[in-house]
Amino acid sequence: GKELVLALYDYQEKSPREVTMKKGDILTLLNSTNKDWWKVEVKATANDKTYERQGFVPAAYVKKL
């Protein structure tokens, strides 16, 4: 199945390749080969529509579930 990670801290994206997350968010882990930056998929809701974004977050800010 898919691997999930838990956001340990809030993170505000600093570039278009990154994604914003809030502490407590559960994210889908896409790639953890880089030890510093993990690629995740974030589900977000805006205007009653759910959309998914993929991007990088600092590996130290998340932990595998």
Rank of each mutant, 00 (worst) to 15 (best):
G1W: 12
G1N: 13
E3F: 13
E3S: 11
E3P: 11
E3V: 15
L4N: 05
L4C: 13
L4Q: 10
L4K: 11
V5T: 02
V5F: 05
V5G: 10
V5N: 00
V5R: 01
L6I: 15
L6H: 04
L6W: 07
L6F: 08
A7M: 02
A7H: 01
L8W: 02
L8N: 03
Y9L: 09
Y9C: 15
D10G: 06
D10H: 05
Y11H: 03
Y11E: 03
Y11L: 01
Q12N: 14
Q12R: 11
Q12H: 13
Q12Y: 14
E13G: 15
E13K: 13
E13Q: 13
K14D: 05
S15Y: 06
S15C: 10
S15P: 03
S15E: 07
P16I: 10
P16C: 10
R17D: 10
E18H: 06
E18N: 05
V19Y: 03
V19G: 01
V19A: 05
V19D: 01
T20Y: 04
T20N: 05
T20V: 02
T20F: 04
T20G: 07
M21C: 06
M21H: 00
K23P: 03
K23W: 04
G24A: 02
D25T: 06
D25Y: 04
I26G: 00
I26F: 05
I26S: 02
L27V: 06
L27E: 00
T28F: 10
L29Q: 00
L30Q: 03
L30E: 02
N31H: 06
N31I: 07
S32V: 06
S32P: 05
T33Y: 09
N34I: 05
N34D: 14
N34M: 08
K35D: 10
D36E: 11
D36P: 02
D36A: 11
D36L: 13
W37H: 02
W37I: 02
W37K: 02
W37Q: 02
W38T: 03
W38M: 01
W38G: 00
K39W: 14
K39T: 06
K39D: 03
V40A: 01
V40K: 00
E41Y: 08
E41K: 09
E41Q: 12
E41G: 14
V42Y: 10
V42T: 15
V42N: 07
K43F: 13
K43R: 14
A44V: 15
A44K: 12
A44D: 10
A44L: 15
T45M: 12
T45Q: 12
A46Y: 14
A46G: 11
A46W: 14
N47P: 09
D48M: 08
K49D: 09
T50Q: 12
T50N: 11
Y51W: 11
E52V: 15
E52G: 14
E52I: 15
R53Y: 06
R53N: 05
Q54A: 11
G55K: 02
G55R: 03
F56D: 03
V57Y: 00
V57P: 00
P58F: 06
P58N: 03
P58K: 04
P58I: 05
A59K: 06
A60N: 13
A60L: 09
Y61S: 09
Y61A: 10
Y61M: 13
V62F: 05
V62A: 02
K63R: 13
K63I: 14
K64F: 09
K64H: 08
K64W: 07
K64C: 09
K64A: 07
L65M: 08
L65W: 07
